[in-house]
């Protein structure tokens, strides 16, 4: 079993799991498959056949709560959503992004198309990555604060209109793109019913166009800004799955960085920390697959290695690719 895992091509395995995840989160409910309402992935609530709900939608929905009602059933509902999210997340950690996210799979498919066309992909320098990385935290803060401001009056301003409901969903490209796969084009509409709706749906459509181009030239482009990734990172220290690096075994060959879809510099450069489950990491395991050093990179579940880099595995995968 250990030998099988060491030699396996994780990328093929991941692609099949991703396809399964995509079908599950776009069509699952049509087959009676309903997982949960608080999933740590983009199970978009605007897709009719989804088999669950993205926690970001649920959070925005349930955070529309007056502060004096936090210690009531409404507050309990919010707490239950967070508990549900936590249980799913702790079990699988950020691999929800790498293996299950339908928006991630869509971006990977677009990147594969670019690769077929022979167009080079973009990479970002470390300072650029650091600047872009802040956007996801801004989005996460806004998506938590706007619903609160809808239910609680701000001094001198009053309450925000309910037309600002689920603001992140309104600009999220999953809302506009994923329903298309079940033949639903209704999310491509520009909503003229009020100024907030006009602003949000207009922004959402512009973001969709930009993300399609971005995903074409940069692998997992949207993941750089995804507030789900930020929310994951808040809890990632508690998760059972971790990406561990043994710094003393690393030769800084850079294979892991080149294999990384997001382009995380730390994976190759950081020789101080063992836990490299960074905020941008998708736990896609491509870095482990590309590492030629014995036991240098590994995925652990509660400290026990599940998948690890081996010299033999590296050469086997490399020879398969050469063929």
């Amino acid at each position: 079993m250990r030998r099988f895992l060491d030699l396996m091509d994780i990328r093929k395995f991941r692609w099949w799991v991703q396809l399964f995840g995509f079908v599950l989160f776009v069509y699952g409910a049509n087959f009676g498959l309903v997982l949960d309402q608080d999933l740590p992935t983009f199970a978009c609530p605007y897709v009719d056949g989804r088999s669950g709900n993205c926690i970001l939608f649920v959070l925005q929905h349930r955070l529309t709560i007056p502060l004096d009602q936090v210690v009531t059933m409404r507050g309990l509902g919010l707490l239950m959503a967070l508990v549900g999210f936590f249980i799913w997340f702790v079990a699988l950690s950020k691999s929800w992004c790498g293996f299950m996210c339908p928006m991630g799979t869509l971006q990977d498919a677009i990147a594969a198309l670019r690769e077929k066309m022979g167009i080079p992909y973009s990479t970002y320098a470390k300072p650029t990555m650091a600047k872009l990385g802040k956007i996801k935290w801004v989005l996460l803060s806004l998506l938590l604060l706007i619903p609160l401001a809808m239910a609680n009056a701000l001094p001198g301003v009053g309450k925000l209109s309910h037309e600002w409901a689920t603001p992140f969903c309104m600009i999220c490209p999953s809302r506009t793109l994923l329903p298309l796969f079940s033949g639903d084009f209704s999310q491509l509409g520009l909503d003229l019913s009020s100024i907030p709706k006009l602003v949000l749906t207009g922004l959402g459509l512009l973001v969709t166009g930009a993300v399609l181009v971005g995903a074409f030239v940069k692998k997992r482009f949207f993941c750089l800004f995804c507030p789900m990734s930020a929310l994951h990172y808040v809890f990632s220290k508690l998760a059972f799955l971790k990406l561990i690096k043994e710094p003393d075994k690393c030769t800084r060959c850079g294979n892991c960085y080149r294999a990384c879809d997001v382009g995380i510099h730390e994976i190759a450069e950081d020789l101080e920390h063992r836990n490299l489950t960074t905020q941008n990491c998708l736990l896609c395991l491509d870095c482990i697959s590309a590492c030629p050093e014995e036991d240098c990179l590994k995925l652990t579940f509660m400290g026990k290695p599940l998948y690890r880099s081996t010299e033999l595995g590296f050469f086997k995968r490399h020879s398969n690719e050469s063929k």
Partner: peptide, 26 residues
Amino acid sequence: ERSGYQKYETGALLGFGGFLASGLGV
């Protein structure tokens, strides 16, 4: 009626505009 306040052609044009502007920018 939703179609009274949702404009699909305008929305699709706006999305395409975002796509085109980003594409040209890149």
